[in-house]
Design a protein around this nucleic acid. Structure first.
Length: 475
RNA sequence: GCUCCCAUCGUCUAGAGGCCUAGGACACCCGCCUCUCACGUGGGUAACAGGGGUUCGAAUCCCCUUGGGAGCGCCA
């Protein structure tokens, strides 16, 4: 029984988008589940569009998502010699042929087919030419491409683990180009050769590759190689149902990092997009691995829903340890707006206060960005700038409440939550106010806002001097 | 145009002929808890695209229609 080998094979023409991330996740999960390996291959045969920045972004994205790959990264372009060798082998065995049709000629052919309402396929005009024809073309200085001599009768089927058996009539599949006229392999050839050479047993990718699967199957067959198991998963759509384009939120995973999402939450969200396991919604990484199965991957496309991602993220934030959250904050700070200033203030004193406030803070935040925002009162400098609601509370009687309360607080022997609460309640009782009517002005003075963690916790984290100072500032 | 894929609440989905008066989750609405906001908790609104079959019985099987999506490159 040979071990399972999956692969994630992005082309480095842009960042790692959300659909790619899910494809990587599924490959990773299947490999983990079956005790196999997930390989990483960068499909950079398109020299003009591949960039080192994109490669970096993809590797960085996978690392952030904690989807590690096995072995070294394979760069497809580095294997061009082998691809060429296979193309020559196919030529030699009659499974491929030289085609001297020019790009202009092919373009005209497509235009004509389109105008006549016929399928836009290569018509095989060089399929059975003589050596003499080829020599004549050569003499004219034409450089040939090498095309697959695909079967013209019968049909080609793909037994897809997600889509089921999908069959094409061979007359709908034309003779694809294996080697370009400049001698470089095409994607179609390179994928097949690489997957074969790398021992890939399961190909999991977006269903935009479904038709390619048929053509690639023909290449496997021409070479007499085993076709790996295939699984074409449906694409992710934008919230409006249209294709997930850049305009819609087909953001790179680094954008999700900058929005303050946790890798564990993003993984959980992504795995439930298209895959299900009964009614279970929350999966730890271990549970995900144990439960994942291609059989439970659906065939219909899913829409991306930020609300659900956010909810999941909130769940994982609440569940996370304060220390992990602190670490998360520090890693995300360089990636968010205004993060640098906060990072500059983040000394051990602030870190201690922040950690102390974390239990109350994390209950109220759905993202790391919100967590940071909710903690602003910790490092705000006196006199505090009030937001609209905070100012409103103080303007409408809040100051009077603070004036009445101040002496009581100043006289406190201890500065712990219980003592403070007793004092504030006593003041409320003495003035006939509800606790909320006293707590809100305090909240406004202490945090500048109308919402915050429990007010007595805020008192304690801020400390006696800072708390009293902030109250006096507002009187 | 041609080929292929898809179709259950607003969204993600459960459902593999009777267990479905269609379940869960998110979102939304109404309560409870409460110093605010959250969290938590109780409840509610909300879906089998349409039409034909097959069957004693269909969300589940078949066909058609409609609506989405993908592919049809010397891109990947």
């Amino acid at each position: 029984m040979s071990a399972v080998v999956t692969r994630f094979a992005p082309s480095p023409t842009g960042f790692l988008h959300i659909g790619g991330a899910r494809t990587a996740l599924f490959n990773w999960l299947l490999a983990k589940r079956l005790g196999g390996k997930m390989l990483l291959r960068i499909e950079d045969t398109d020299r003009a569009r591949s960039t080192p920045e994109a490669i970096e972004a993809i590797l960085d994205g996978l690392k952030w998502l904690e989807l590690g790959w096995d072995g070294d990264v394979v760069y497809q372009y580095g294997r061009a010699d082998r691809h060429r060798a296979v193309a020559c082998e196919m030529l030699a065995k009659g499974a491929a042929y030289r085609c001297y049709a020019t790009p202009e000629e092919l373009e005209a052919m497509r235009e004509k087919a389109k105008a006549e309402g016929k399928p836009m396929r290569y018509d095989g005009r060089w399929r059975d030419r003589s050596e003499a024809d080829c020599a004549a073309a050569e003499a004219k200085g034409l450089k040939p491409v090498i095309r697959l001599k695909a079967p013209q009768e019968g049909e080609t089927s793909v037994d897809d683990l997600v889509q089921g058996r999908v069959t094409w009539s061979n007359d709908n599949l034309d003779d694809l180009v294996l080697l370009r006229s400049d001698g470089n392999p095409t994607y179609m050839l390179a994928v097949v050769v690489d997957d074969h050479d790398m021992g890939v047993t399961h190909v999991i990718r977006g269903d935009d590759h479904l038709t390619n699967a048929a053509r690639q199957t023909q290449i496997y067959q021409a070479m007499g190689w085993d076709v790996p198991a295939m699984a074409h998963i449906p694409l992710i759509h934008g919230p409006d149902g249209a294709k997930l384009s850049k305009r819609h939120g087909a953001l790179g995973v680094e954008a999700y990092r900058a929005m303050g999402y946790l890798p564990v939450a993003l993984r959980n969200y992504l795995v439930r997009l298209g895959w299900s396991f009964g009614d279970q919604e929350i999966f730890s990484t271990e549970e995900m691995i144990a439960a994942f199965d291609l059989k439970n991957v659906g065939r219909s496309p899913a829409r991306f829903d930020f609300a659900k991602l956010e909810n999941l993220n909130g769940h994982y934030m609440r569940q996370a340890s304060d220390a992990d959250l602190m670490a998360g904050i520090e890693t995300v700070l360089p990636h968010i707006e205004g993060g640098a200033e906060i990072a500059a203030k983040l000394d051990s004193g602030l870190r201690t206060k922040w950690l102390q406030a974390m239990p109350g803070l994390k209950e109220r935040a759905k993202t790391l960005v919100e967590l940071i925002d909710g903690a602003r009162f910790l490092f705000a400098v006196r006199p505090l700038a009030l937001d609209e609601k905070g100012a409103d509370i103080l303007a409408k009687g809040g100051r009077d409440v603070l004036r009445g309360l101040l002496p009581r607080l100043e006289a406190l022997p201890d500065w712990d939550a219980a003592t403070l609460e007793t004092a504030v309640r006593a003041e409320a009782e003495a003035t006939g106010l509800k606790l909320g009517a006293v707590a809100q002005p305090l909240r406004a003075a202490l945090t500048g806002r109308s919402t915050s963690p429990g007010i007595f916790d805020v008192f304690v984290v801020l400390g006696r001097e800072e708390s009293l100072g902030r109250i006096r500032d507002q009187i």
